[in-house]
């Protein structure tokens, strides 16, 4: 079931020049820590002049949609979904 969240969250992000890989590694949300096990898709789009990066990731049996605002440099958890 998909739930809209739209809350600011803390994210630990890895950008490795050695492996040429960039990905959110850990999400800290409502006092809990979620280790990202897989990035399904990363895409970006422009809202007005602001570029937003969207990371669709999973942690265990939960899927997260994270957005990174390149103007405010803040992360937001947009959606969470779990399979019933």
């Amino acid at each position: 079931m998909l739930t809209k969240i739209d809350e600011r969250v803390s994210v630990k992000f890895v950008s490795s020049v050695l492996t040429n890989k960039v990905y959110p590694e850990t999400i800290y949300w409502r006092g809990r820590v979620y280790k990202v096990s897989k990035v399904g898709l990363h895409h970006f789009y422009k809202h007005g002049r602001t570029l937003k990066h969207i990371f669709s990731v999973i942690s265990g049996e939960t899927a997260f949609r994270l957005s990174f605002d390149t103007e405010s440099l803040q992360w937001k958890l947009e959606e969470v979904s779990e399979l019933n």
Binding site: G40, L41, S56, I58, E61, A63, L83
Partner: peptide, 9 residues
């Protein structure tokens, strides 16, 4: 594409 974004699907 949705299944790509969300591997659980």
């Amino acid at each position: 594409v949705e299944q790509q974004a969300n591997p659980l699907l």
